[in-house]
């Protein structure tokens, strides 16, 4: 995590804030752990108090005081509107189309927003064995839209995925539609450098905004394919004082809660 040059916030904070802003009030959001969970809770504590956070452990309307380390921390059930079984959360909620936004991270992404969280290298003899699918394939399949959050680098933004764990816009164009999925796929990818959105026709991820201080060269350098850049390239509004205060408070509360002794 690098401190923005004298900007008073880090690149990760910019990424988290930018992701949280995309979440509208009242949205039903299926949340993954890590930056997606930070961003979703930041949204809930700032501009979107009415968003309904769902974690795959079965908690609906979770309102954690501190950030959960896992998707099933007790914190999530404590103040939830409801807690349902795992089959119910996947079948009746996600597959049934009751989720507006799925919030995902990944180890690798390609130009059409397909995601890999399974292996790097070959499947039979992996260089790195990653945790695997979890609920990501079905979130990518069935959420009305998907927000992807991950740091931009050549290791992560690759020409060809080692493994397709979750489908984004498949081979581009209307190819996703042929797969029978009811959800719309990734509508935005938020990185530490800027914001990418799929082209309306080709569905190829296109850089549409840079965070303050980032450059197109930097974004191209951190992308393993020839990155398309929008003609009207925007600049992200830097994190506001209120956003930073709430985010940092949340992280401090979380760190303090984790200091309990082992055993």
């Amino acid at each position: 995590m690098t401190e923005g040059e004298g900007r008073g916030y880090t690149a990760d904070e910019m990424m988290t804030v930018a992701a949280s802003r995309r979440l509208g009030d009242g949205t039903v959001c299926f949340v993954g752990i890590g930056i997606p969970s930070q961003a979703a809770n930041l949204a809930r504590l700032t501009h979107a108090p009415g968003c309904v956070l769902i974690y795959e452990s079965g908690t609906i309307g979770a309102k954690p005081e501190v950030l959960p380390l896992s998707i099933g921390d007790g914190e999530l059930a404590e103040h939830a509107d409801s807690v349902v079984s795992v089959p119910e959360i996947f079948n009746y909620w996600l597959q049934a189309g009751r989720v507006d936004v799925g919030f995902l991270g990944a180890a690798q992404i390609d130009r059409f927003g397909n995601l890999n969280t399974t292996v790097v290298g070959s499947y039979e003899e992996p260089k790195v064995r990653l945790p695997g699918a979890g609920g990501a394939p079905e979130i990518a399949a069935s959420a009305k839209e998907v927000f992807v959050v991950l740091r931009q680098s050549r290791r992560a933004f690759v020409e060809k995925l080692a493994f397709v764990t979750s489908v984004g816009h498949a081979e581009g164009g209307d190819s996703r539609e042929g797969l029978g999925y009811t959800g719309g796929g990734p509508s935005v990818v938020i990185t530490d450098l800027g914001i990418l959105e799929p082209d309306p026709e080709t569905r190829e991820l296109t850089l549409v905004a840079l965070h303050p201080g980032s450059t197109v060269e930097e974004a191209r350098e951190a992308t393993g394919w020839d990155l398309k850049v929008a003609e009207n390239l925007g600049t992200t509004e830097p994190p506001g004082e209120g956003e930073l205060r709430v985010l940092r408070d949340l992280k401090e509360r979380t760190a303090a809660a984790r200091k309990e002794k082992v055993g």
């Binding site: 399974t118 394939p137 764990t165 489908v167 797969l179 029978g180 999925y181 009811t182």
Partner: peptide
């Protein structure tokens, strides 16, 4: 769920287009 229901298999939307 299929196992608990004494069915041989379950049906879902998913996996299509992935490498799984």
């Amino acid at each position: 769920v299929a196992g608990a229901s004494n069915l041989p298999f379950a049906v879902l939307r998913g996996y299509v287009g992935t490498d799984l």
